[in-house]
Design a protein around this nucleic acid. Sequence first.
DNA 1: CGGGATCCGCACGGATACTG
DNA 2: CAGTATCCGTGCGGATCCCG
Lengths: 129, 129
Amino acid sequence: MATTTAAQRRAQAKAEYDAFLAACPSRQLLDRISDKWVTLVLCALGAGGAMRYSELSRKLAGVSQKMLTQTLRALESDGLITRTVTPTVPVTVSYELTRLGSSLHLTVRALKSWAEANMDEVLARRSPG
Amino acid sequence: MATTTAAQRRAQAKAEYDAFLAACPSRQLLDRISDKWVTLVLCALGAGGAMRYSELSRKLAGVSQKMLTQTLRALESDGLITRTVTPTVPVTVSYELTRLGSSLHLTVRALKSWAEANMDEVLARRSPG
DNA sequence: CGGGATCCGCACGGATACTG
DNA sequence: CAGTATCCGTGCGGATCCCG
């Protein structure tokens, strides 16, 4: 049928990715996004819209320039965020979620919220009787 | 007021956890759960119910004994999974999600699914034109 | 301001051997 | 089967200096 479209074939291919398999590309992708700084960057950008480098640096307390830059570069190359340079003096750089990044933002935000919401319960179970 | 109950004060405290802050306990918790092996273990247990050590080892292709054991111990001490030893010969050990673990499972499953569903798009953006 | 480049410690994580 | 113990490489991540 003519209705076996590219979209359908893509859906078929998608179903074949399995992060449980060591060699599957999605395993590497999962490793990438299962990262503290990735989660916090996406949460920050998702909540605040476009943000500048220094804003992110302040928001993500304790992050080093190296890790922040490294994280931003990785997210950019994976198409999750955009990097926009405005040639002011001094230069202004702002980061923003792409549509792809926004879709992930929903999930990582849930992860961060879970950590905050269940902190008490975890603490109670760590040093109990 | 007498209506300022312990439950209310606890709700207040919960709202104060902020993973953006370096010193906040939830930051450490976020770091813990933002882990590839944690995600995969929770996904496996969430999908298959109770599982034995060797089952997990097979399901999570490529994981070393050290990392698997380490991950299981951490999840156990945080109250996310239970460890049950049955004194057969040889001994049988099975792991299962707690209620707390189940609530996190929903989120990490979304993370894994996202990685698998959006793999194509990320790959397309990595080596573009 | 927004990084790049470099040095370096150390802890993360793999491999192997051994145990109850 | 389900680990524990040990050795060991390496890359994560912090600190520092420099640049446009």
